[in-house]
């Protein structure tokens, strides 16, 4: 049976979709058959980040409504084996997500995939609730700033109270913290919360710290998950985090500012 993982945050713009794309690609690169689902009905983005927007015919909502078969809507990634994308509808809204409909799709995907990644919309309303409801594990995407941390705290509370596991009294959803857009220089100057500040407030295990990187935006715009860019710090940090998720013991990187040579110091940040 596959594991359902929700990528969630409460707050918008923190990097949920970027992280969903990176983790899905990372799992698939390591040979795990993975599907990533866009729960942001009406604000379809995942297909853009994954670079498959021109191949969308049917979507998640069509399947929920029984208008198409699952295999008609699943898009096979062209770059990476074992990777599938289930895009959402741009013309509908979150009310199209019914609990029964989502459950039916999840049960079907569980039989076929090892990892099912649910890319949650921002907020705490129906879309976010449906994305987290069936989760076995949750990756909480947080930026090192107070509003993002507080919203993550709220989502953690909802995972503990309103997920399927909580309602049925099963083992709780396993929680992981992914700290994204982390700028060690600004942390050092006291302009951003540091890793320990965030961990103290959220009190869940740290899965990874993704450094702020210009490469992320560039990768998004060309529809290539950042994890495929193994030159970039962010790409490497995602690869580390995927390894940790799979149980490997990998030391955290990119938390401290890197030592800069005279050349770099003379010409500003490189």
């Amino acid at each position: 049976m596959g594991q359902i993982i929700v990528m969630t945050s409460g707050k918008g713009g923190v990097g949920k979709t970027t992280s969903s794309a990176a983790f899905a690609t990372g799992f698939a690169l390591r040979g795990h058959k993975t599907v990533v689902i866009d729960f942001d009905v009406g604000l379809r983005n995942l297909d853009l980040i994954m670079g498959c927007e021109r191949r969308v015919v049917f979507d998640f909502i069509n399947i929920i409504n029984g208008e198409a078969k699952l295999h008609q809507a699943l898009i096979k990634d062209k770059k990476v084996e074992n990777l599938y994308i289930l895009p959402t509808s741009q013309t509908r809204d979150k009310d199209a997500l019914t609990k029964e409909g989502v459950e039916k799709v999840m049960e079907e995907l569980r039989k076929e995939f090892e990892f099912i990644i649910c890319d949650s919309p921002a907020g705490i309303e129906k879309g976010a609730l449906m994305a987290l409801y069936f989760a076995d594990q949750a990756i909480i995407v947080t930026n090192p700033e107070v509003s993002s941390v507080r919203d993550s705290d709220r989502i953690l509370g909802m995972l503990a109270a309103r997920s399927r596991r909580a309602e049925l009294g099963l083992e709780p959803v396993v929680e992981h913290l992914l700290l994204t857009r982390y700028d060690p220089y600004r942390v050092e100057r006291g302009e951003m919360l540091n890793v320990d500040d965030v961990l103290e407030i959220l009190a869940i295990p740290l899965l990874g710290v993704i450094p702020e990187s210009k490469e992320v935006l560039r990768a998004s715009n060309v529809g290539m998950p950042i994890i495929l860019d193994d030159e970039s710090n962010a790409g490497q940090a995602y690869a580390d985090a995927v390894g940790r998720f799979l149980g490997e013991d990998i030391e955290h990187r990119f938390i401290k500012p890197q030592k800069r040579g005279l050349f770099a110091r003379l010409f500003g940040r490189m």
Partner: peptide, 8 residues
């Protein structure tokens, strides 16, 4: 016995 999160 568990953390009381924001909003609860």
């Amino acid at each position: 016995n568990e953390p009381v999160r924001s909003g609860r």
